[in-house]
Simulated scan of single mutants.
Amino acid sequence: MTMQFSPNISFPGNATEALRFYHEVFGGELDIMTYDDMPDMNFPFEPPAGTVAHATLNSGTVYIAGGDAMGPDSPGLASEAYSFLLQFDNVVEARDYIVRLTAGGGEVTMAFEKAPWGDYYGQVTDQFGVVWMLNAADN
């Protein structure tokens, strides 16, 4: 059996901006399809022009899917109920990603320091409200 787990994020109208930012951070291949690009499928809603129906970012190590949430009751992304964990082989690489994830206006919400389990650990909330946990082996 072959399976891959990846998050699918429903952005509050800024999916293109967010996924382009993640493309800058992680690299890889970004594919964005708007509702304008799709055939008429009789959706139960009227998507605004340019709204993202489906997008994927595949960097080889990070795979993110997403699109724009539809409807006035769409939740925002800022939440402490979920986060994405990035695992690194070394502290230097993890610190580089902290800089990348905060470059657009994000913030370090937990300092990247030696953790009780022996690795280095910290948290960042990016400019879109997504929480990233970073863990790196201490070598």
Rank of each mutant, 00 (worst) to 15 (best):
M1H: 13
T2F: 14
M3T: 13
M3G: 14
Q4C: 12
P7N: 05
P7S: 05
I9N: 02
I9V: 11
S10Y: 10
N14M: 12
N14H: 08
A15V: 08
T16E: 14
T16Y: 05
F21H: 10
F21T: 01
H23N: 12
E24A: 08
V25M: 00
G28Y: 04
G28Q: 02
G28S: 05
E29P: 09
E29D: 14
L30V: 03
D31H: 13
I32W: 01
M33L: 15
T34E: 01
T34S: 11
Y35G: 07
D37A: 06
D37K: 03
M38G: 01
N42W: 05
P44M: 03
P48A: 10
P48E: 13
T51Q: 14
A53V: 09
A53R: 12
H54W: 11
A55V: 01
T56D: 13
N58I: 11
G60R: 07
T61D: 12
V62T: 12
Y63C: 14
A65C: 11
A65M: 14
G66E: 03
G66Y: 01
G67C: 08
D68G: 07
M70C: 13
G71C: 09
P72K: 11
P72Q: 08
P72V: 02
G76M: 10
E80G: 13
E80H: 15
E80Y: 14
Y82C: 11
F84S: 15
F84V: 15
Q87V: 14
D89E: 07
D89A: 01
N90Q: 05
A94T: 02
D96P: 07
D96V: 09
R100T: 01
R100M: 03
T102R: 05
T102H: 06
A103R: 09
A103L: 05
G104R: 15
G106H: 03
G106V: 07
G106L: 06
E107S: 01
T109H: 07
F112M: 05
F112Y: 08
A115C: 11
W117P: 04
G118K: 06
G118R: 09
D119W: 05
Y120T: 06
Y120N: 04
Y120R: 00
Y121L: 03
G122E: 03
Q123T: 15
V124S: 02
T125Q: 02
T125S: 05
D126Y: 00
G129H: 04
V130G: 04
W132G: 02
W132H: 02
W132R: 01
N135C: 12
N135E: 04
A136I: 10
A136Y: 04
D138V: 09
N139W: 14
